[in-house]
Design a protein around this nucleic acid. Structure first.
Lengths: 296, 296
DNA sequence: GCTAAGTGTTGCAAAAAATGCAACACGCTA
DNA sequence: TAGCGTGTTGCATTTTTTGCAACACTTAGC
């Protein structure tokens, strides 16, 4: 490491106890080595070696300075080792910009699974209104964006584009709980628990209801995922969520049933990055794992 | 600090978020600055900055490296501050080679007094046989040597050369305790507490006894200073010590009385250093303080 | 006391590294 | 599309580092 050459030289002289002996080891001339030491002593404004006929010896200032040198060398090795880890997958930081619904329903499980395998990787997940998400990429404040509508900005490159079916979530005691697939008309009849207008799931359900001529009035309108699940498990109605949403909340009172094919159009999940940017290893790996999980 | 220039450059770029802006601040060309960054990145084997049209930004590796840089810069400032303290008296280390008797009897009080004023100064006191003490100077393992015989080696320079009278130490209840000065014959009659043969004080007492035709047989022969004092305070006899020996042991049962002028020849204390060696500031100051204490 | 061998240090020339100048490449905005 | 801001590169110049040869000092042996 050229930038630490002077420090490396001083360490070698301290160890050898002689400028000439150290110069042999370092394969440079004693003259050059002596000058480097004199230069650092001049920078520090004090001598760090006592000169004797049989060699040199660190003085008190030199003892302090050598500690600093060795500490810096050790710290640099540690940093280099951690930097090498970044080139692998063991260490890293993943910054995600997404919408509230995805943040609440889809990401927790994915992130948890990933961190089980790579505990050295940290995540920052920030939620925004849909039209703000891509701007985070542009501003370099996020590594990837995850949304339900197609990515629009010209400098955003799509990494993942996949369907997301809508599933029903209800109490095991619900009359429809034993069916293998449901119809939207039945769900609305027994009372639907829907997220607020503007939510992707709400839009898909409403579009299907219009298409089928059904009156889509929610029995309960709730945003918070935990609240939604608690209401459903108390047999308060049928909630809707994405096929890959997190349902590992230790909630054994809930059952998940798909709608019949074609009942509700699926949503599309998009994952994107800033065009031409090379993603850190950990981010790339996370995207890869996300794709696998979603493809199952 | 030239030897940390590359690190200083990287810190400036990270702060400015732009190579050109940082070059302005550093008063060098963007070209030179860019090359220094590229050089360090090559040394590390990984990029530490992401390049964008609006400037640069640290990547994960860069975040790790900048922490290292800032930590080392802070540490260097700390070390420089401590080095500056060495040029004053506040900080330092004093290495003393001496004999056992001086180590036990003379130095504790001197060192304690000095450290009361300069608590940042540390001491290493090592005791040797008389003929080994000066070799420690020669080997650079001690800053000063303190002995009772003249310094002999050609490369040892005498710093202090002073007489050390012998005083008597006894219980306040001793029959001779009220006298202002004592005679050796009386001391021997009441029982003398002497150190082992070979000790400087023992030799001076025995020489005087021979000169006066007195039979010098110790009532008690003891080496340990604390033991000697305890025996004396229990009225077990009269002990002898140097005028400047440490008697601040909270021992109010003891009184110190000088011998009559000429009763016992005084000892001579010598303090020396290696010829032509510049002593660290703290060592010089300690010698100065020692001289003052002894001259009183 | 002198010589040889070992040490650190210095004058000066040569080599290497750092820097500046000018231009290029790229992205963004009006 | 042109202009502006950014980072980067070829090449010349400057600065720093290094090597060569000699000097200065100390120590040990004769």
């Amino acid at each position: 490491m050229r930038h630490m050459l002077a420090l490396k030289y001083i360490d070698a002289v301290a160890k050898a106890g002689s400028i000439r002996a150290a110069a042999e080891i370092l394969a440079i001339t004693p003259s050059a080595l002596n000058r480097r030491i004199l230069a650092v002593e001049e920078e520090l404004g004090i001598e760090i070696f006592e000169r004797h006929s049989l060699g040199v010896r660190l003085n008190s200032a030199g003892e302090l300075f050598i500690q600093h040198i060795r500490s810096q060398m050790a710290d640099l090795e540690r940093v280099r080792s951690r930097i090498a880890d970044l080139s692998g997958v063991r260490l890293g930081h993943v910054r995600i910009a997404t919408t509230k619904e995805i943040g609440a329903n889809l990401l927790p499980k994915l992130v948890q699974d990933y961190r089980t395998n790579f505990p050295g990787v940290t995540f920052a997940i920030e939620t925004f209104a849909r039209n703000e998400v891509e701007r985070q990429l542009h501003n370099l404040d996020a590594d990837i964006a995850i949304v339900f509508q197609p990515l629009r900005l010209a400098d955003v490159h799509t990494l993942i584009h996949t369907q997301q079916e809508i599933h029903c979530l209800m109490s095991t005691a619900h009359p429809l709980a034993k069916r293998s697939a449901l119809r939207l008309v039945d769900c609305l009849e027994y009372g639907a628990i829907l997220p607020p207008r503007g939510d992707g799931v709400r839009e898909l359900i409403e579009a299907a209801a219009v298409r089928k001529g059904l009156n889509c009035v929610p029995a309960v309108e709730a945003d918070d995922a935990t609240l939604v699940k608690n209401i459903a498990s108390l047999n308060g109605g049928i909630a809707f969520s994405y096929a890959h949403a997190d349902d590992n909340q230790g909630n054994g009172d809930l059952v998940r049933i798909p709608l019949h094919q074609g009942e509700v159009e699926p949503g599309f999940l998009f994952v994107g990055q800033l065009h031409k940017r090379t993603l850190p290893v950990a981010v790339s790996k996370f995207v890869e794992e996300m794709r696998k999980a979603i493809d199952q």
